[in-house]
Design a protein around this nucleic acid. Structure first.
Length: 953
RNA sequence: GGGUGCAUAGCUCAGCGGUAGAGCACUGCUCUUACAAAGCAGGGGUCGUUGGUUCGAACCCAACUGCGCCCACCA
């Protein structure tokens, strides 16, 4: 196959962009070319020197070509490298570290869009802005991937052994782990690559050791035999947060324990656990079983007898009111077992295989279940069955295997002493949550805490720094300490939960436990942007550890340690939390690989550009909101970029100049359209700022979108064409106004559309980069000249004439001679030329034009209180039917309006109780409606319209 | 089981007490030199149902119906 040149180029670029070219770390090597203020000369696309003639823009908007070059230039200029020594105000964001195994998906681009916008805006506002990137080692996920990889070669991790396996995983990380970072570069994230971190790198591992040791010494980490969630496939413990519950079909069987008079019936969905039963429990007040408490019953299929005990935890209303107790395989039963000192035999191994000697030994738990039910049925022990029986079942969030509660020896973090302070920090406003409604979910967790199981039976991760001696000694080895070397000592085999190191991310990445300048200047981080789906996994835990490590602790009288709830504001890991939703498809369905509707962001970036994808995501990005997205909408955003590109190109081609500061302050001199667009620009700036202050990216994007497209392009640019062709002073003003509007808008849009605004702004201003340009602020000038009102009049007039022309089937090109009667009485008197240009109306020609001109059709419009009639010469070709239809329609609308308004004005209570401004507004509407009705009726009459068109009211 | 949210145009959503809006889709016309990745004009909704509060309700309150999400050791 032969490729055409452009096609080949495109493919080459796509390939080039994804990997090789981005691995040139010399762009951001420490001490290299990244120092701010000393941009390296760039000969490729952009001139860094003051060039009086900046390079012309390409003829077409072409993100595929320009975006990678622009990103290179940013890295070369070092604009994202934060200076901790700066005396500016500080702003910092740490990236939610993506899994090292991952590739970029739309969820990442979604939150990166928001973080980049926030950081870029702050940088333009004069802050020293740090956006710190990095990756998470993702314990279970990565180990699973590498194990799958090994399995293809017929190997298991045990064939390699621990050391080799970990080595292999590091290798894998080096080879594939940076993929997502390469993809982020193509997206154009403005992160500080010189500060990139990894949860398993040297510094962060020190942080993990340090906090483990501190917590251990403070008695906040302990090891205990507890019921934990166990995944028989991953063969590791899981925290509560790593278990997903779903309502599954099961089977509830009732089994008779014991014989005859002294028998008792219990119900269960997990019949196989009966092999581990050590009691039957009933409620102490339950009269039905009172006589049995203290006796023993025979446990079927075994040679054991178990006691009947009384425990207040049993619900007498449920089932038979009697519960079988399996302390080693059920959390409730474990608690009962502890209270009654019951034996806790484990009946399954780590794979979920029955270990009790006998006929069921070696059976998987799901094979054992029907086998045991069958055996019980044979003995006549099954007294009732209910199937299907829907009940909540826990699944491993990593592999979806049914979780098995299992008694085992694990490490835990004592959460209560940490959590109180974490609750207070949000309640007293030191940490803001957006949207505020979601703080409720945060408190749900904080107020209902369970201790956090942090040990994992994996090999990939931070190994627990505890050593066990030959005589039962336990020693926690802190950072810098030597592990015991005497014979017989061995280190704990387990590693820490991935979220343990993630919980340190806001300060470990800044150098903690060292007292670094970064830590001092950039902590607490300003904003955390993350999904509401990991509020519990991550946000809560960062709060716990952040306040513990960076705040103060108190030793209680009993020797226990708690985190001081009144820790200073500088202890919190972040000051604001912005929670975003999920990316959904165009039908509102959650995007997921399994749902088959997942999209590779790079594909869209390749076709439409990073800016287009960002803008589409931004238009769905409000706190707590899910963002629907589809290719059509990305295309729409690309079209917007193209619009902006072409409009700027228009301005440049007419020598638009950015005015000196204050040059346009005296607006009295300017034309109506000029005053209007500057006024609207100011409103847009205010709206965008207000929206971004509230993290409402969607509102900001929409405000800018509508200003650029509906106001700037559709109206001002069209009007400016007339001004540019007009008298010199007017043309000069137009060039300055265009310069001003585009300068401000490009800066204002930069956080949301970084690439196209950079390209256009550099060309417009000749400056090296918009990244460090000054952020626009609202001038706050009220519309003192009534420009908005007059422009509304102009727009109405123009639209009415255009509509008439459209209804009459007139081509735009067809200049129609016309008189604008009465215009001189209105505020548009000076703008007849502009009105004619926008409506393609010609001045009547001929010797005595005004007198000879014969009108054959007219359009009547109300300009404020003044009637204006546009009289056109259609040379007798007026489509009367079309015209009458149009007028009839307007008349009907005007009458409806009049009816509604009169209903209000006829209501004495309305007049009495409604605010006077509202009443005045309604009166004005009534007057306007009446004027419309009069005018339209006259026109309708003139066209020979029948009288029955009268209102039926 | 406990929370919590949502129902507005064909689709996805904004509006949250005083004339129902946007994008896409749809219809007609136009290659008018910034832009056809466009322009101009247009059609389309008793704002889930039923009550209530109010001069006035898409908006506030209650109930109902239908979806969704979060939490949960219901054997």
């Amino acid at each position: 196959m032969r490729l055409s040149t452009p096609e080949a180029l495109r493919i080459f670029r796509a390939w080039e962009n994804t990997s090789e070219s981005w691995n040139r770390r010399d762009f951001f090597a420490p001490g290299g070319t990244t120092n701010r203020g000393e941009p390296e000369a760039d000969t490729k696309l952009f001139k860094m020197t003051a060039d009086p003639h900046p390079p012309a823009l390409p003829a077409a908007y072409d993100p595929q070509t320009s975006e990678p070059d622009i990103y290179d230039s940013w890295l070369r200029q070092g604009v994202f490298t934060a200076d901790a020594g700066s005396d500016k105000l500080m702003f910092s964001i740490v990236i939610p570290p993506p899994n090292v195994t991952g590739s970029l998906h739309l969820g990442h681009t979604f939150e990166h869009t928001m973080m980049d916008a926030l950081a870029r805006r702050r940088r333009m506002q004069g802050y020293e802005a740090l956006w710190l990137p990095g990756m998470d080692h993702a314990g279970i996920a990565t180990q699973n991937v590498v194990e799958r990889h090994l399995a293809q070669g017929g190997l298991s991790r045990h064939d390699l052994g621990r050391e080799k396996f970990v080595e292999r995983t590091w290798q894998w990380k080096q080879e594939y782990g940076g993929k997502i970072l390469d993809q982020m570069r193509r997206f154009g994230v403005g992160v500080d690559w010189s500060r990139e971190r990894f949860t398993m790198d040297e510094g962060l591992s020190q942080a993990v050791l340090t906090i483990f040791k501190n917590l251990y010494d403070d008695g906040l980490i302990y090891r205990a035999e507890r019921i934990i969630n166990w995944c028989p496939r991953c063969q590791t413990a899981l925290s509560d947060a790593e278990v997903d519950h779903s309502d599954d079909d099961g089977e509830l069987v009732s089994i008779r324990y014991g014989q005859g008079e002294s028998s008792i019936v219990v119900a269960t969905t997990r019949a196989e656990t009966m092999l581990g039963d050590t009691a039957v429990a009933v409620h102490p007040d339950d009269q039905r079983y009172r006589h049995l408490v203290g006796t023993v019953v025979e446990l079927p299929l075994t040679d054991r007898s178990i006691p009947v005990i009384a425990d207040a935890h049993v619900d007498p209303q449920f089932g038979t009111g009697a519960v079988k107790v399996t302390p080693a395989h059920d959390p409730n039963d474990f608690a009962i077992g502890q209270r009654h000192g019951l034996a806790m035999p484990t009946i399954m191994d780590e794979r979920g295989v029955i270990t009790v000697p006998g006929p069921f030994e070696g059976l998987d738990r799901f094979e054992a279940r029907p086998a045991i039910v069958a055996a019980l049925r044979e003995q006549g022990r099954i007294v009732a069955e209910k199937r299907p029986y829907v009940h909540a079942v826990g699944h491993c969030s990593r592999c979806n295997t049914t979780v098995e509660p299992r008694l085992s020896l694990q490490w835990f973090v004592k959460v209560a002493p940490l959590a109180a302070a974490a609750g207070v920090a949000v309640r007293d406003g030191r940490v803001g949550i957006h949207p505020p409604e979601m703080a409720g979910r945060y408190f749900d967790w904080i107020d209902n805490l369970h201790d956090w199981c942090i040990s994992r039976q994996l090999w990939w991760g931070h190994r627990i720094p505890v050593w066990y001696g030959p005589d039962g000694q336990v020693r926690c080895v802190g950072p810098g300490e030597q592990p015991p070397t005497e014979p017989g000592w061995r280190q704990d085999e387990d590693v820490l939960d991935t979220w343990f190191s993630s919980a340190l991310w806001p300060f470990s990445t800044l150098g903690w436990p060292q007292k670094t300048v970064d830590l001092q200047r950039f902590y607490p981080t300003s904003v955390l942007v993350t999904g509401y789906d990991i509020l519990f996994f991550w946000v809560v835990r960062m709060m716990l550890f952040g306040l513990y490590a960076m705040g103060r602790t108190q030793r209680q009288a009993d020797g226990s340690v708690t985190v001081d709830a009144d820790a200073s504001p500088t202890a919190v890991p972040f000051q604001q939390v912005v929670l975003h939703g999920l990316v959904r498809d165009q039908y509102g369905k959650k995007m997921s690989k399994s749902g088959g509707n997942a999209v590779d962001p790079l594909a869209w970036i390749g076709t439409y550009g990073s800016d287009a994808l960002r803008f589409t995501l931004a238009r769905g990005a409000n706190p707590g909101a899910d963002a629907p997205i589809s290719e059509e909408w990305v295309k729409g955003s690309r079209n917007f970029c193209n619009k902006l590109f072409n409009a700027t190109r228009f301005a440049l081609s007419h020598d638009a100049r950015v005015p000196a500061v204050g040059a346009l302050a005296d607006r009295g001199r300017l034309s109506l359209p000029q005053r209007w667009i500057l006024q609207r620009l100011d409103v847009c700036v205010a709206e965008v700022n207000a929206a971004l202050d509230a993290y409402e990216f969607a509102r900001a994007a929409n405000a800018a979108y509508h200003f650029v497209w509906d106001e700037l392009c559709d109206w001002y640019v069209e009007l400016a064409k007339q001004e540019l062709a007009g008298p010199d002073h007017q043309a000069d003003d137009a060039r300055l106004v265009l310069g001003q509007v585009f300068d401000v808008m490009l800066r204002l849009l930069h956080p949301l559309l970084p690439f196209v605004t950079e390209q256009l702004w550099m060309t417009l201003t000749g400056q090296p980069t918009v990244v460090t340009a000054q952020w626009p602020t609202c001038q706050g000038a009220a519309d003192q000249t009534g420009a908005e009102n007059s422009m509304t009049h102009l727009q109405n007039l123009v639209t009415q004439v255009r509509r008439f022309r459209s209804d009459q089937g007139l081509r735009d090109r067809q200049r129609v001679p016309a008189r604008l009667v009465g215009l001189e009485q209105t505020d548009l008197a000076a703008y007849e030329h502009q009105v004619r240009a926008l409506t393609w109306l010609a001045v009547p020609t001929g010797q005595d034009a005004a007198e000879d001109f014969t009108s054959t059709a007219s359009v009547a419009v109300s300009i404020g209180t003044h009637p204006v009639t546009v009289e056109l010469d259609l040379a007798g070709t007026v489509d009367v039917a079309a015209e009458r239809a149009r007028i009839a329609k307007d008349l009907a609308a005007a009458r409806t309006e009049q009816q509604q308004v009169q209903a209000k004005l006829g209501n004495s209570e309305f007049l009495a109780k409604a605010p006077s401004q509202v009443v005045e507004k309604i009166r004005a509407r009534a007057a306007a409606a009446q004027a419309d009705i009069d005018r339209l009726q006259a026109q309708h009459h003139a066209l020979g319209g029948p009288e029955q068109e009268r209102s039926t009211a």
